[in-house]
Each structure stands twice: as structure tokens, then as C-alpha cells.
Design a protein around this nucleic acid. Structure first.
Lengths: 316, 316
DNA sequence: CTGAAAGCGCTTACAG
DNA sequence: CTGAAAGCGCTTACAG
């Protein structure tokens, strides 16, 4: 009888009904992922890491895009939980995020990736934004730049907040008083970087270097600089963040901070899997290293700009 | 009693168990999507269209990456069907695809997007590769080019096959005998375009223009051309396909064929939804228009190249 | 119109 | 060790 059944199973391509199994075992082997926008290569690469790690353990992943809209985030997640996903991976955290606080209160398994709530929770897998930003600005300082602008991310998102803090502290370590006019919140997109850079270039005492919160903003800055008839790095040095060089081929090639995007996604998935399998919670957050990639958008400060007759000097 | 229950429901944030509902109703409201690689901006944009259209109708989407490996395609799809997805959207079709033939035989609801099996089935949503390729090559012909190479896609995938056919037929319409040495299969990635372009440049009688199967291959070609110390479009004109200009910022900006990627994904999802809701099958395939975007990588054939002393002439 | 019961297809604890 | 039964949380057809 057994053999006959097994043969029949093969013949009819029998597949166990996963829905029935889920109902009985209370495990769906599906994880939900909430992401601002999968069409953004940054998140696409993180997501690829998530999917790869999950697929290794026979988990599937449902993806929801939110376009950074908190309402869509809430709606997606409610739907996902209704579908009985075993856990959630969120790339949408705000520093103060009532919605994620709700997940914590409910004890629902989840991991934060890239962005984290404040203070950083043990279930977060994020880049070392603070030290990365410091490294970027130290690089500019080492090239002789003293007047350095920052095209900043959003203050209510951990990446924007930490990168700005790293920028300010790097300046402080070199006894440079930050100029508020040189910090412009520009968001994370090309258009924001473009608009902010135009403002920077309109300053009477323009900076010799710019640290952008990410490569997309840097791309916008590059466009504004080119439009103004200036050259990178001759007239302005520019550092980005994220190293989207594989998808974003700019001229000149961008000096930027490299993040292990795929590994970050995979680590987030592994953390969730661990929670689901052992019902343990991670002890402490995972902060991934960020490394400087020197390419062609940064150079030594031009000597004629070092001491302009009427220019204020900010270095000691 | 009712009101008390409704109040309790709200208090405890009650969500109906979707798994139990699925088991009873035989509908999961989940669709599976099988894609070569979500980290590729082309597929990421198509996928975004799919997710947007599906979310409008309260469907969720599970994504599986295959890296174009037929074995992973089979494994993912088996898993997806085990999870009782209501239908499948596949961006992985080969022209002869036993696996998809199996779905057809089983009558399992599915839609093909971007790539199709041969002959093109009614459930396909694809770009007009053939006419797009013709337009691209006609553009080069109008600029005076007669010796035009093609960095071709894979012959067993509809996009590669149709774009090659469009290339050949455009030449034929101008009474140009195609030179087999000028058609090089290079796949769909940067590295393939680079290697193929090096071969092209090594030819004794190099072409004055190149039509690449996609922008990624064109990016590789651009790199090979720059390495050879030649300039685009002065020495070689180059046309791509897909218009990934938002994510791929090349210098010079690429003349290419624009595809409505997001709309293609959304249309594929809508077609599947229609099948699921009305149990009807589409009458005929949806072939999306492809339009020429003229940018900076194509120009008139250089006059000194028109009649080189010892060069063979291919134009009539 | 209301409410109890059957059943979706599994898994697992339990009786034989 | 084997096999019948209960039950996961819904929906829906049906009895009252």
C-alpha cells in the first residue's frame, strides 16, 4: 500500500498543503519584509541578502513597499500579521516609532535593518553610521579641507542622525566650529542633494568639500556642481555614503563609504531565524563595519582657496 | 453581546487568521513572483509595478530569486505552490521551457512578464523587442552607419532572440548583408558586454556603430571602448535597450530604447488578478511599446571612416 | 434571521 | 509500532 501511495504521489505531483500545515503547527514559514522602496538599489541589495538567507532555511518572504509613509507601513504590517507571517524584518524604522514599539509590546518577533529606533535595540542590524561619517570627514580633513558642508539625512531617522553626529564630532576633534549654514537637510534622494548643493554653492563663503548623507544625494550634488561650471574634485571634493557604484556609475567615480548591504540583509534574516527557532532574543545589536573607498571625487584642497583675502578661516 | 465582542476585538487588536481562512476558502490572496535577480534594477522596477498593483487588491506577493538557474526556478515554484499561492508571475521564461509547459498543462494560473515562451502565449506581458530593436538599428542607419555590430542576448530567451531578429531585419530592409563576425552573444551583464566589445574592437574592419541587447551590456561596451582610447560617439556610436538611465548614470548618456517597466509589472499583475477573479484567460498577449530615447552615445558616422582605402564596404 | 455544526488538510497526542 | 481521532481557526451551508 505504501509504495502504491508513494508512486501515486509522484505521479500526481502531490505537494503537502502548506496552509493546512501552518494552521495546525502555528508556523507559516513565511517572513514579512517592510521596505521603503524595492526599486531603490540600496534596499534591493539588502533584500536580496534577506531572501538568500531565508531561502536556505526553507522560509519564503513577502515584501511590502511603504514609500516611507507611516500609514502604509501600518497597513502593510497589519496585513502581514493577518497572513500569519512568523516574523517581520523592517527597514523603515524611525527613531521614535510608535508602531515598532507596538511590536515590541506584543512580543512579536522582528528585526530592524539599516535604520533603528532610539535607543538602539538588541534586534537591530545596522551600519556603523557614526564612525563611517567620521571616517568620511576625517578623509576630507586629511586632504586639507577645513570648510566642509554636510548634505544631511532626516534627523528623525537613525542613519541621518548618526551620520550628522559623526560629521559634527569629526569637526570638533579638529577644533573646527561647525557652521550651521553648511548643514542642509536634503533627504535621501537625488533631487534633494541637487537642491541642497545649489544652496551651498550660492553661499558667499562656499565650502571646499561636501559630505553627502548618501550616494544618491551626492549624485544630485554632482549635477548641481557641474551646472555651476565647477569641477570635482578640483573645485569641490565630494564624499558619498553607501557605495552604490555598481548601479550608480557617476563621473567622476565617487569616493564613498562602502556598506556590506547583502551581508546586512542576510544577518538580519539570520537573527530573525534564530529568534524563531530558539525563541531567544539577541543580546546586543549588530553594527556592521563601514569602509572608505577612495575614488576620484576627492582631492587635496586647492591652494588658492586655502587663504582667500577676505575669507573667514575656520581652522585654528 | 455583539458590541462587547466588537469592543474586545478592538482592544485585543484581533486580526482574523488568514491561514484558517485560506484553508477554508481555498484562496490565499498571495501571489508568487519568480525573478532572476531583484538586485537588478530592471527587475526591481518591474517587481515594484507588480507589488503596487497587487497591493491595491489586498494581495500579497512572495518573491523568489533564481539567478537564471532552471533548477532554482523549479525548486522555488514547487515551494510557492506548496504554500498555496493563488497564482504565479514569472520573469524567467525560456523560449522552450518544460517547466512552464507543466504549469500550462496543470491549468495553474500564471502570467509571463518580460520574457515569453515560444510561440508567445496569451498570458504574456512583454516589451516589443522586435520593433524596438528595429527602431534602434534604424536610428543608427539614419545616422549613416552601415557597419553595425550587435552585442546579442541569449538565443534561447525571447528578448535576445527577438532583438537579434529586429537587428537582422532592419539591416535587410536596407539591403545590408549581415556580417556574422559582427553578431556576438554577450548575455545580459556588464562583463559580457565588455568582453564582446573587446572582440569587436579587435576586428580588422571594426564597425562604426553597436547595438547592445541591453544597457548593462552597453555599459560594458562603453568601458571597453574607453579602454581602447576611443570616444563615443565620435569613433563608435552605441545604442542600448531598457533605459536604466535613472540607476545607470553613464558618460556619455546612453541613447537607448525605453521600456515602461513599472507599467509592464502592473499589467502582468492585473492580468493575473483578472484570471483569479473571473477564471477567464486572456485572449491575446500584451506587447508593450518601446520608444527611442536619443541621448549622447550616438552620432553621425565620422566621414573619414566612410571610405577607408582598404576597407570593405557593406552598404550598397 | 440566528446559531450550531461540518469541514478545509494537515499534525500530533493517544488508544489499541 | 500502527491507525483512528481530535483539533488548528476560519467559512458556509443548513437546521431551527
Amino acid at each position: 500500500v505504501r509504495e502504491r501511495i508513494l508512486t501515486l504521489a509522484r505521479e500526481h505531483a502531490y505537494r503537502a498543503n502548506g496552509v493546512a500545515r501552518s494552521l495546525r503547527t502555528k508556523r507559516s514559514y513565511v517572513v514579512g519584509t517592510v521596505i521603503p522602496d524595492i526599486a531603490n538599489p540600496f534596499f534591493a541589495t539588502v533584500f536580496r541578502g534577506i531572501e538568500d538567507a531565508l531561502a536556505c532555511h526553507d522560509y519564503s518572504v513577502i515584501l511590502a513597499n511603504t514609500d516611507d509613509d507611516p500609514e502604509r507601513e501600518a497597513r502593510s504590517t497589519t496585513m502581514l500579521r493577518g497572513r500569519q507571517v512568523d516574523g517581520l524584518i523592517l527597514a523603515t524604522a524611525r527613531r521614535i516609532d510608535p508602531f515598532i514599539a507596538g511590536l515590541v509590546d506584543a512580543g512579536f518577533p522582528h528585526v530592524l535593518v539599516n535604520r533603528h529606533t532610539d535607543p538602539i535595540p538588541a534586534n537591530a542590524v545596522v551600519p556603523d553610521d557614526y564612525h563611517g561619517a567620521m571616517t568620511a570627514v576625517e578623509h576630507l580633513l586629511a586632504l586639507g579641507h577645513r570648510r566642509i558642508a554636510h548634505l544631511a539625512g532626516l534627523a528623525d531617522i537613525s542613519t541621518g542622525h548618526a551620520r550628522r553626529a559623526g560629521y559634527l564630532d569629526a569637526l570638533a576633534r579638529h577644533n573646527i566650529t561647525p557652521d550651521p549654514a553648511l548643514v542642509l537637510e536634503c533627504g535621501y534622494r537625488e533631487s534633494g542633494g541637487y537642491a541642497a548643493m545649489r544652496q551651498v554653492l550660492a553661499l558667499e563663503d562656499a565650502p571646499t568639500a561636501v559630505f553627502a548623507v548618501n550616494d544618491l544625494a551626492a549624485a544630485g550634488a554632482l549635477r548641481a556642481i557641474a551646472e555651476a561650471g565647477m569641477r570635482v574634485p578640483h573645485d569641490v571634493s565630494l564624499v558619498g555614503f553607501n557605495d552604490l557604484s555598481t548601479s550608480l556609475q557617476l563621473t567622476p567615480q565617487l569616493t564613498t563609504m562602502h556598506l556590506p548591504l547583502h551581508a546586512m540583509g542576510a544577518a538580519a534574516a539570520d537573527r530573525l531565524l534564530e529568534q524563531l527557532q530558539w525563541r531567544t532574543s539577541p543580546r546586543e545589536p549588530l553594527v556592521m563595519p563601514v569602509t572608505l573607498v577612495e575614488r576620484d571625487s576627492t582631492g587635496p584642497v586647492a591652494t588658492e582657496l586655502l587663504g582667500p583675502p577676505g575669507g573667514r578661516r575656520h581652522a585654528v
